[in-house]
């Protein structure tokens, strides 16, 4: 289960709407409590590094941006616990491409943006054997 603050939800929605019709992306910062309960109260938006003509359905975060975010998280005494991205005009369900590129451990938040308006936000975790994504309970 992952719990995010209303502010985190609002910021992800705003990022998704701002970058529409392209995909937005960034990191979720927070803590992981016992029993793998996750709490996020902050995000680090990151520039989608995919070339412009592909950014409507793809995102990539460069390794140097990852390292920078990890240092920023540590400076705030937090951890990167997940990644958010948007699916413009598409359901918030992991794609085969997400599965191919997904990492275990992280909570993958996916925001559906319909006609430029933020819609449903969901969370997913990659199975350790890479067989698929499992839905993760998301609370705001």
């Amino acid at each position: 289960m992952i719990s995010i603050t209303k502010q985190v939800q609002d910021r992800i929605n705003a990022e998704g709407e701002r970058d529409y019709p392209n995909e937005t992306c960034g990191f979720l910062l927070g803590r992981i409590e016992r029993n793998d309960v996750r709490e996020s109260d902050d995000i680090i938006p990151v520039v989608n590094a995919r070339e412009t003509e592909e950014a409507y359905h793809r995102f990539v975060i460069l390794p140097q941006d990852f390292l920078k975010a990890e240092h920023e998280a540590l400076a705030k005494n937090k951890n990167i616990i997940g990644i958010y991205h948007s699916h413009p005009d598409h359901p918030p369900i992991p794609s085969d491409y997400d599965l191919e590129h997904g990492l275990p451990f992280y909570s993958y938040l996916i925001l559906s943006v319909k006609d430029g308006k933020a819609d449903k936000l969901t969370s997913w975790r990659l199975e350790n054997d890479r067989s698929g994504f499992a839905a993760e309970e998301l609370k705001v």
Binding site: E23, R50, F59, I61, L67, H85, D98, H101
Partner: peptide
Amino acid sequence: LVPAIAGGRP
């Protein structure tokens, strides 16, 4: 080892 995070809709 540094992950490059990627994904996207179909």
